[in-house]
């Protein structure tokens, strides 16, 4: 791959498998193929949205990217550094530039730490500043994410869900990262608070020229936040395209089904719905052919068995996993 300077993150054929052990000797008897050969890149200042149903591997992918996991195979290049198998000690200085915001702020924030400590922690780990300068930076960050001035001395439980997510964002911002992996950052929030946090994220991105990987299952939210969108199904990206394009002109049957399933907040809208049968198959024993064709019992499914399904560019910037059953 060429070393294009606008590419902040390049991911090539990334695989993240989790071993299943069993028997007396606890030998490996199988693997959960949570992420199974995924390639994409993220440019500077860009938001890539990642959608898919639960269990499709989107959170695992996010965690693998920031190296909270040890990838099984493939390659992650961040700012030209290959971080795929880098040891944690060497990765730590690089972590300044990529941070993660988790879905449930109630669980991801240590309940026994005051907000000031929580937000200062990344600075301490990276050995930045002294106590006074850190205090100043914390005050600045809390103000930036819209928390009241006296927040630093309080504890997470004293805040509402939306405010807690702001704490999580302040913490991720502390080191001025270039890339934020946002794992369902607004899913746990009520509608009126959700829009506040989305506005905040958009504003921060403009001001600090950050790139986002925005993981969510709400397609309207993802569309609003993203420049390009990747649709994931059972550990693989089945379609990747500019946001407008994927909604206007979806090519993969799964993307179409996903789009038609969104309940539209308009009582006069009458649409032809594609109601999908069945559930996402198990990533332990994925079907031999196209995973989606298998779910819907497509008549041409057999043709995809044993085939390597290529990921092809069908229009400029519009990539689709080609298979006989899911593409018209």
């Amino acid at each position: 791959m060429n070393n294009d300077s606008s590419k902040l993150l390049e991911v090539e054929n990334l695989r993240q498998h989790f071993p299943i052990r069993g028997g007396v000797m606890m030998k490996q008897i199988g693997a959960v193929k949570a992420v199974d050969g995924v390639s994409f890149d993220i440019e500077t200042g860009e938001t890539l949205g990642l959608v898919g149903e639960s269990g499709c591997g989107k959170s695992t992918l996010g965690k693998a990217l920031v190296r909270l996991l040890n990838p099984t195979g493939g390659r992650i290049r961040f700012k030209g550094h290959d971080i795929t198998h880098m040891r944690q000690g060497r990765i730590r200085p690089l972590r300044q530039d990529f941070q993660m915001v988790f879905q449930d702020p109630a669980e991801s924030l240590d309940a026994r730490m005051a907000v000031g400590e929580l937000v200062a922690e990344p600075l301490i780990i990276q050995g930045i500043g002294n106590r006074v300068s850190r205090q100043k930076r914390v005050a600045e960050l809390l103000d930036r994410v819209g928390l009241p001035g006296n927040s630093a001395g309080k504890f997470p439980f004293e805040f509402s869900g939306g405010q807690r997510q702001r704490i999580g964002i302040a913490r991720a911002l502390a080191l001025n990262p270039d890339l934020l992996v946002l794992d369902e950052p607004v899913s746990a929030l009520d509608v009126s608070v959700q829009s506040q946090v989305m506005n905040l994220l958009l504003e921060l991105q403009r001001d600090f020229e950050m790139s986002y990987l925005f993981i969510a299952h709400d397609l309207a939210v993802v569309k609003h936040m993203s420049d390009r969108i990747a649709v994931m199904y059972l550990g693989k990206i089945v379609e990747l395209a500019p946001a407008e394009e994927i909604y206007r002109n979806p090519r993969h049957a799964y993307t179409k089904a996903l789009l038609s399933a969104i309940p539209v907040p308009d009582p006069t809208a009458k649409r032809a719905r594609v109601i999908l049968e069945g559930d996402v198959p198990s990533p332990i024993h994925p079907p031999a052919g196209c995973a989606f064709g298998h779910r819907v019992g497509h008549e041409r499914y057999e043709e995809s068995v044993g085939q390597e399904l290529p990921f092809e560019e069908v229009a400029p910037g519009h990539w689709v996993q080609k298979c006989p059953c899911c593409i018209d």
């Binding site: 609003h224 936040m225 946001a243 907040p265």
Partner: peptide, 9 residues
């Protein structure tokens, strides 16, 4: 305050 598919990105 709900984001809509047809609203401007």
């Amino acid at each position: 305050s709900i984001p809509r598919i047809e609203s401007e990105r």
